[in-house]
């Protein structure tokens, strides 16, 4: 039996990657770690784009889109890190549990 890598494998991998990212975003206390989780989620999405582009499409729309996402993610990371730095300036911590001034 030959193992053919198909769309499902990519999708499962992407789902695992997404879940890991989500897990990091939801559970981690450190803002930087959360950002890292966000990157994982984005990359899971990229993987999906590429997989769908490879298996279901004829042109390169998916692959091109993932390139955009990578660029955007870089920009987002830059902005997010700047926010984290500001957060640290304000409350002297990057622990997200402490940043609850929006609590109702």
């Amino acid at each position: 039996m030959s193992l053919t890598v198909g769309l499902h494998h990519f999708l499962v991998l992407s789902a695992i990657l997404f879940s890991l990212g989500l897990y990091a975003v939801v559970t981690k206390r450190n803002a930087v770690t959360v950002l890292m989780g966000v990157e994982l989620i984005l990359n899971a999405a990229n993987l999906n784009f590429i997989a769908f582009g490879r298996f279901l499409d004829t042109d390169l729309d998916g692959q091109i889109f993932s390139v955009f996402v990578i660029v955007t993610a870089a920009a987002a990371a830059a902005v997010a890190l700047a926010i984290v730095l500001n957060l640290y300036e304000r409350i002297k911590t990057v622990n997200l549990d402490e940043a609850d001034s929006l609590a109702g």
Binding site: L22, V26, L96, A99, D100, S101, L102, A103, G104
Partner: peptide, 13 residues
């Protein structure tokens, strides 16, 4: 309902 509004972004997510 305010209980829901913890102010913690992770809860919202």
């Amino acid at each position: 309902l305010r209980v829901v509004q913890t102010g913690k972004i992770q809860n919202y997510i």
